[in-house]
Computed example of a mutant assay.
Amino acid sequence: MNRLTLYTTLGCHLCERLEAMLSALHYGEYRLEKIEISEDEALMARYGARIPVLVDAAGDELDMGFEPPRLAAWLAERHWLDEAAWRRLGAQFEPHGQARDERERTNQRPSGRRYLG
Protein backbone atom coordinates (compact mmCIF):
# COMPACT_ATOMS: atom_id res chain seq x y z
CA MET A 1 0.00 0.00 0.00
CA ASN A 2 1.32 3.43 -0.98
CA ARG A 3 1.43 6.14 1.63
CA LEU A 4 0.69 9.67 0.46
CA THR A 5 0.33 12.99 2.23
CA LEU A 6 -1.87 15.82 1.05
CA TYR A 7 -1.19 19.33 2.34
CA THR A 8 -4.56 21.03 2.27
CA THR A 9 -6.87 23.45 4.03
CA LEU A 10 -10.57 23.58 4.76
CA GLY A 11 -12.67 24.49 1.74
CA CYS A 12 -9.92 23.93 -0.82
CA HIS A 13 -11.85 22.97 -3.96
CA LEU A 14 -8.61 22.21 -5.83
CA CYS A 15 -7.67 19.79 -3.07
CA GLU A 16 -11.03 18.06 -3.45
CA ARG A 17 -10.47 17.83 -7.19
CA LEU A 18 -7.02 16.29 -6.66
CA GLU A 19 -8.47 13.74 -4.23
CA ALA A 20 -11.18 12.74 -6.70
CA MET A 21 -8.69 12.31 -9.54
CA LEU A 22 -6.28 10.45 -7.29
CA SER A 23 -8.97 7.94 -6.38
CA ALA A 24 -9.75 7.47 -10.08
CA LEU A 25 -6.16 7.27 -11.36
CA HIS A 26 -4.16 5.55 -8.61
CA TYR A 27 -3.53 1.89 -9.34
CA GLY A 28 -3.96 -0.27 -6.27
CA GLU A 29 -4.42 0.71 -2.66
CA TYR A 30 -3.09 3.84 -1.03
CA ARG A 31 -3.39 5.61 2.27
CA LEU A 32 -3.87 9.37 2.13
CA GLU A 33 -3.00 11.43 5.17
CA LYS A 34 -4.36 14.97 5.03
CA ILE A 35 -2.40 17.71 6.76
CA GLU A 36 -4.28 20.92 7.58
CA ILE A 37 -1.81 23.74 6.95
CA SER A 38 -3.83 26.61 8.45
CA GLU A 39 -3.06 25.43 11.98
CA ASP A 40 0.73 25.74 11.59
CA GLU A 41 2.63 28.89 10.62
CA ALA A 42 5.57 26.96 9.13
CA LEU A 43 3.24 24.87 6.96
CA MET A 44 1.39 28.01 5.87
CA ALA A 45 4.67 29.62 4.85
CA ARG A 46 5.79 26.53 2.94
CA TYR A 47 2.55 25.38 1.31
CA GLY A 48 0.07 28.28 1.55
CA ALA A 49 0.41 29.44 -2.05
CA ARG A 50 1.05 25.94 -3.42
CA ILE A 51 -1.80 23.77 -2.13
CA PRO A 52 -2.79 21.18 -2.90
CA VAL A 53 0.60 19.53 -2.53
CA LEU A 54 0.76 15.74 -2.76
CA VAL A 55 3.81 14.04 -1.26
CA ASP A 56 4.95 10.43 -1.56
CA ALA A 57 6.71 8.44 1.18
CA ALA A 58 10.13 9.45 -0.23
CA GLY A 59 9.23 13.14 0.20
CA ASP A 60 8.80 13.94 -3.51
CA GLU A 61 6.21 16.68 -3.90
CA LEU A 62 3.66 17.39 -6.60
CA ASP A 63 2.31 20.93 -6.87
CA MET A 64 -0.79 21.58 -8.95
CA GLY A 65 -1.75 17.91 -8.93
CA PHE A 66 -5.31 18.99 -9.65
CA GLU A 67 -4.21 19.24 -13.29
CA PRO A 68 -4.90 15.75 -14.66
CA PRO A 69 -1.81 15.44 -16.92
CA ARG A 70 0.48 16.48 -14.05
CA LEU A 71 -1.06 13.99 -11.64
CA ALA A 72 -1.00 11.21 -14.24
CA ALA A 73 2.66 11.83 -15.03
CA TRP A 74 3.59 11.90 -11.33
CA LEU A 75 1.76 8.64 -10.70
CA ALA A 76 3.26 7.04 -13.83
CA GLU A 77 6.80 7.89 -12.66
CA ARG A 78 6.08 5.81 -9.56
CA HIS A 79 4.31 3.00 -11.49
CA TRP A 80 1.07 3.86 -9.68
CA LEU A 81 -0.97 5.04 -12.65
CA ASP A 82 -4.04 3.07 -13.65
CA GLU A 83 -3.40 3.30 -17.40
CA ALA A 84 -6.93 2.25 -18.39
CA ALA A 85 -8.47 4.89 -16.12
CA TRP A 86 -6.11 7.52 -17.53
CA ARG A 87 -7.04 6.62 -21.11
CA ARG A 88 -10.71 7.09 -20.23
CA LEU A 89 -10.19 10.26 -18.18
CA GLY A 90 -7.32 11.77 -20.17
CA ALA A 91 -9.36 11.99 -23.36
CA GLN A 92 -11.51 14.63 -21.66
CA PHE A 93 -8.48 16.86 -21.14
CA GLU A 94 -6.96 16.67 -24.60
CA PRO A 95 -7.60 19.55 -26.97
CA HIS A 96 -10.76 18.91 -28.94
CA GLY A 97 -8.91 17.02 -31.60
CA GLN A 98 -8.71 17.99 -35.22
CA ALA A 99 -11.42 20.62 -35.04
CA ARG A 100 -9.46 22.80 -32.60
CA ASP A 101 -6.21 22.32 -34.50
CA GLU A 102 -7.92 23.27 -37.74
CA ARG A 103 -9.44 26.42 -36.17
CA GLU A 104 -6.03 27.51 -34.91
CA ARG A 105 -4.44 27.04 -38.35
CA THR A 106 -7.16 29.02 -40.12
CA ASN A 107 -7.71 31.59 -37.34
CA GLN A 108 -11.41 30.80 -37.10
CA ARG A 109 -13.63 31.17 -34.08
CA PRO A 110 -15.96 28.26 -33.26
CA SER A 111 -18.75 30.20 -34.99
CA GLY A 112 -16.79 29.96 -38.22
CA ARG A 113 -15.92 33.65 -38.45
CA ARG A 114 -12.36 34.58 -39.31
CA TYR A 115 -10.38 36.98 -37.19
CA LEU A 116 -6.90 38.46 -37.28
CA GLY A 117 -4.72 36.44 -34.93
Results as ranks from 00 to 15, higher is better:
23 S>Q: 15
92 Q>W: 08
104 E>I: 14
43 L>D: 05
94 E>I: 00
92 Q>G: 14
102 E>W: 12
96 H>Y: 09
65 G>W: 01
71 L>A: 07
68 P>W: 00
63 D>A: 13
33 E>R: 13
41 E>A: 13
62 L>R: 04
31 R>C: 09
47 Y>C: 11
102 E>N: 04
71 L>M: 06
34 K>N: 05
104 E>K: 15
75 L>Q: 01
60 D>I: 15
83 E>V: 11
68 P>C: 04
62 L>I: 09
38 S>C: 01
34 K>E: 15
100 R>F: 11
27 Y>V: 07
106 T>C: 08
35 I>P: 00
47 Y>H: 07
91 A>E: 15
39 E>P: 02
23 S>F: 02
52 P>S: 03
67 E>V: 05
74 W>H: 05
81 L>H: 03
61 E>Q: 12
89 L>A: 09
58 A>R: 04
99 A>G: 09
80 W>E: 05
32 L>I: 12
100 R>E: 14
45 A>P: 05
66 F>W: 15
67 E>F: 05
67 E>K: 07
101 D>W: 11
75 L>F: 04
61 E>R: 07
82 D>K: 03
84 A>L: 09
55 V>M: 12
80 W>S: 05
109 R>N: 12
39 E>W: 00
38 S>G: 01
38 S>D: 13
104 E>T: 02
96 H>R: 14
32 L>A: 06
100 R>A: 09
65 G>M: 02
67 E>A: 10
45 A>S: 03
59 G>I: 03
67 E>Y: 06
70 R>M: 05
73 A>N: 09
60 D>P: 00
109 R>V: 10
38 S>E: 12
45 A>Q: 07
91 A>K: 14
49 A>D: 12
77 E>P: 01
36 E>V: 11
37 I>A: 01
64 M>W: 12
31 R>Y: 08
23 S>L: 02
94 E>R: 13
88 R>H: 13
71 L>Q: 08
41 E>M: 05
